[in-house]
Design a protein around this nucleic acid. Structure first.
Lengths: 226, 226
DNA sequence: CATCGTGGCGATACGGTGTATTGGCCAATA
DNA sequence: TATTGGCCAATACACCGTATCGCCACGATG
């Protein structure tokens, strides 16, 4: 049950030959274009001009393919920076950037164990930059940032998707939810929320993500100062 | 396309009659028992001793059923407490408790718009308790807590599931990942992580969740004090 | 060189899914 | 009583992940 490791055939691969990499890349292209639901083993195989069963010589199951796709994205996330605050900020921003390039990544983020080699390498890159922090504090702090990032990114992508599908048929969306929401708010059952959504300044996604992250990092800084 | 509102037939319902509530409750029982994947319209219908197509008189699509299930869980989350810190803490803990009762909720959390009536009521309960906070700061702060909670809870449930399935056949799991991880760590490519997982105290899930939450709340408190 | 064995690969098959369509039956109305 | 309308069940379709089977081509062996 080797998941992330599977030896390629030792003789140099024929250029057109199948491989785990080619399969994962094809799956990622499909997911980038049409979302995770568009990734089926049949479609991936078709994109590679191959029968569906061929894939089972390289991956054991569809879940394993999803794990490999995730780990391929982790390869794109390599946080840099000096000092813990820069490292954690970079971790958050590069993860978010990756999710913007691959929206489906937001759906997988946190939904499966992060044990792939690239995910581990990313963890190493972060942990190794947490200089001067007590060893007992490293994982909780990194974990908290990862949790915030996963939740915030998923929320953001969800909203973006909702806006996009409502943009395609904004008329429909407004017809469906506009009256419903309007009635609820007019009902007076949500006075506090009404006041906030009416009066508050609306931040764009960048600023809102950054603000929440800064709150968390400020809390970490305060803890470290004690 | 009324999603969360659909009038029940006005004459008082026959006890055994179908209804959105009965459908949602049956789906939740299935999901609690065997996970989200076990929720299929056919199985829900079978649990209600009814043909699958009957459900389409009450819900438009399976996604709508998932939205209704989510919103039913939000009905269980009613944060209490006086003052913003108690309210946000309560929001986090009750959300986490709900995900412990309904593990599938962690998979849905943040994955779809939170526009159901109970979700809105929960939002109102939180916002109305953010007393003394500038109107522009309310949503970002509540949003940050919600993001952290969603990410942390999903991560926690994912780990819990991995442990459980590996508990069923722990031998298999160790045989699969033990050597792989051992080799990676022995390879010396992850010195910082190795040191941390070797030397650091391991917190249980309760403490780790609470610690991350406190970091974020401390950051909020610091911001409010400025 | 002829034959046999083998192993990889394609096609087929199975049980499941969400949902569209069809057709029949029952009940209320003209 | 004849008709019509609406509800409900059954059927149907396209697709999914994956198990199985049978063929064919190739390498080893007599």
């Amino acid at each position: 049950m080797l998941v992330w490791e599977r030896p390629e055939p030792p003789d140099r691969p024929t250029p057109g030959a199948l491989s785990r990499d080619r399969i994962v890349r094809a799956a990622i292209l499909l997911a980038d274009a049409d979302g995770l639901d568009a990734v089926s083993l049949r479609k991936v195989a078709a994109a590679l001009e191959v029968g569906p069963m061929r894939l089972y010589g390289y991956i054991a199951t569809k879940d394993e393919l999803l794990d490999l796709m995730s780990d391929a994205v982790y390869a794109e996330i390599q946080p840099a920076g000096e000092g813990w605050r820069a490292a954690l900020t970079s971790l958050a921003e590069t993860t978010r950037d990756a999710a913007h390039r691959h929206e489906w990544f937001a759906d997988l983020l946190g939904g499966r164990p992060r044990l792939g080699p690239h995910a581990l390498a990313q963890g190493e890159a972060v942990v190794s930059r947490m200089s001067g922090i007590h060893v007992d504090d490293v994982m909780p702090m990194v974990g908290a940032v990862n949790a915030y990032v996963a939740g915030a990114v998923r929320q953001e992508i969800t909203e973006r998707r909702a806006e996009r599908t409502s943009g395609l048929d904004k008329r429909q969306w407004q017809a469906a939810f506009g009256p419903y929401l309007q009635r609820l708010f007019a009902s007076g059952r949500f006075p506090a929320m009404s006041a906030v959504v009416h009066d508050a300044a609306h931040l764009d996604a960048d600023r809102s993500f950054r603000l929440g992250l800064d709150l968390l990092l400020d809390g970490i800084a305060a803890r470290l100062a004690r």
